[in-house]
């Protein structure tokens, strides 16, 4: 981790910012000076005030590193990486707070998703993932073209239909890795589409009546009980 990477982790979005800066030809803290305030703001995804703050932090960090004898010259690199005297920061902090009890709603949503996966491809006995059936809702049956999903144009909808994915539920429940491969799209883009499909279903569910109120109690004590 060089000084620029450290700066990005401390005062920006970490590796994402670092990649953008490097792509813009900025490889070190001194090289930040070659970027105009506007260019820097663009790379940082912030406004000029944010960029100015980042520049200030950069100058402070560079000065501090020189002061501690850890950094020298243009690249601000080259300290003894093997240890030696320790900076005086690692003193006691309060103990970590205990794990609290929780019942997060998203846990229920994930379990519901896995239930539907289990229904489509039931695991072999002894049924490690024995879980209840989710209440069937009509929202999931809505055709993809009927519902506006950001980033899902007609071309993509067509390719999905060729893969047999026609509905919100079909998109939501598809295996992301497989879908990314079949569509030759980045994994994160596919996951985003699936997230949007899921959200659209939830929004529709509030408007549409639920077909049947199946129990959401766990049938059996599975690993998630």
């Amino acid at each position: 981790m060089d000084a620029l990477a450290l700066l990005c982790n401390l005062h920006a979005d970490g590796p994402a910012t670092l990649h953008r800066l490097r792509r813009a030809g900025c490889e070190s803290i001194p090289a930040l000076e070659d970027l105009s305030l506007g260019e820097l703001a663009e790379q940082l995804r912030t406004d000029e005030e944010g960029a100015r703050r980042f520049q200030r932090e950069a100058a402070l960090l560079a000065a501090r590193m020189r002061g501690e004898g850890g950094e020298s010259g243009v690249e601000l690199d080259g300290a003894d990486p093997s240890g030696g005297d320790l900076p005086t920061v690692a003193t006691g902090l309060p103990d970590q707070e205990p794990e609290e009890e929780f019942r997060a709603p998203e846990v229920d949503r994930v379990l519901a998703k896995w239930r539907s996966l289990d229904r489509d491809a039931p695991p072999l006995p002894p049924g490690e993932f024995l879980v209840p059936r989710p209440p069937a809702s009509q929202a999931g049956n809505r055709a993809l073209e009927e519902v506006g999903i950001e980033g899902l144009d007609t071309d993509l909808a067509e390719r999905l239909s060729e893969l047999g994915i026609l509905s919100l539920r079909g998109l939501r429940d598809a295996v992301t890795v497989d879908l990314a491969r079949d569509l030759a799209l980045p994994f994160t883009r596919v996951r985003r589409l699936q997230f949007l499909a899921k959200r659209a279903m939830e929004e529709l569910e509030e408007e549409l009546p639920v077909e049947s109120e199946a129990s959401t109690r766990l049938d059996t004590a599975g690993p998630f009980a």
């Binding site: 981790m1 450290l6 401390l10 970490g14 960090l61 990486p81």
Partner: peptide, 25 residues
């Protein structure tokens, strides 16, 4: 990132281990 203490720890780690420390945190 919002904790000054945590930032100090990161700076200290980078000062000692920069050659082997990953960019990702």
């Amino acid at each position: 990132r919002d904790s000054p203490m945590s930032r100090e720890f990161l700076i200290a780690l980078q000062a000692r281990f920069r050659g082997i420390m990953l960019d990702t945190v």
